[in-house]
Simulated assay, not measured.
Amino acid sequence: MDGPSSSSVSSPHTISTTLTRRGRGFARGIKEWGTGTKIQVKFDDKFQPVEDDGKKLKGQLGLIMRSGHRVPLTYLSWNVMHVDIKENIWQEVKDNLVYCPDEFKEVCMRLCRTSWKDHKSKTKSKYWVPFKNDPDIASRVPSNIVPT
């Protein structure tokens, strides 16, 4: 190199090399989801979604599970959740896939249960447990969670 390295240059226009990590962020979901355009997902012999579209479908299920208006966190467990909520999720999945075998329902509900449980656990440990004695705990509720 002929000149000084960029780390030793000192000028008012030098960009700081210290970066703040923000984390991964939320999944973006499938653009076509809910628009009437159906997506093609391939399944293996155990009815697990596979390939890139299978990964996107799993991410979309995670987004649905994190939606507090669709799937509330007020239930103690997935098993006691109202049947209508689960049926609405299944109907939404069927409406957005070109081919959705009935055998995928059990796999889909298992994926949803795991995602919902993880979301509930992370939300509770981050927002409720540290502040459970705070009288103004409702002000700390994130935007994707229903305050009640």
Rank of each mutant, 00 (worst) to 15 (best):
M109I: 11
P49W: 00
K42Y: 08
D44N: 13
S77I: 12
V83A: 15
P135R: 13
V9S: 11
S7M: 14
K132Y: 08
F47H: 03
M109A: 08
G34R: 10
K94F: 02
L111G: 06
F131G: 04
K38Y: 01
P135S: 14
M1W: 03
S139E: 10
P4H: 13
Q40C: 06
S11P: 10
Y99M: 03
C100R: 09
T35K: 13
G3L: 04
R110M: 12
K124R: 12
V50M: 05
V83Q: 15
D95T: 02
D53V: 07
Q48W: 01
V83L: 15
R113H: 11
W116P: 00
G29E: 07
S121E: 13
G59P: 00
R24H: 14
G3S: 07
G36E: 05
V129M: 12
S16G: 15
S143R: 13
R28A: 15
K56T: 05
T17H: 09
N133C: 05
I89P: 08
G54C: 12
S67C: 14
R28M: 15
H69C: 10
R113C: 09
K105G: 06
K105E: 13
K132D: 07
I85H: 10
K105F: 07
Q60M: 03
D95M: 02
L19W: 07
D44R: 04
G36D: 05
D53R: 08
P72K: 06
N96F: 05
S5M: 03
T17R: 06
M1R: 10
K122G: 09
E103F: 08
G54Q: 05
K55E: 03
S139D: 15
M109L: 15
R70T: 09
K38F: 00
H69W: 12
S77F: 14
G23Y: 00
I137N: 05
Q91G: 06
T35Q: 10
I145P: 04
A27Y: 11
C108A: 08
Q48I: 01
T20N: 03
R66K: 08
E87K: 09
K117I: 08
E87A: 03
P49G: 04
D136W: 02
L57E: 08
Y75A: 06
K126F: 01
T74Q: 04
K132M: 04
H69P: 06
K117F: 05
K120N: 00
V141C: 12
V50D: 04
T148Q: 02
F131D: 14
S77R: 11
V71W: 05
L73K: 01
F26H: 13
K46A: 09
K94C: 03
K124A: 08
D95K: 02
K58Q: 02
R21K: 09
K105I: 10
F26S: 11
T74K: 09
C112L: 07
H13Q: 14
K117W: 05
E92W: 01
I64S: 10
I64L: 04
T148S: 11
E106M: 14
K58S: 09
D134Y: 01
G34Q: 12
N96S: 03
L19M: 14
G29S: 02
K94Y: 05
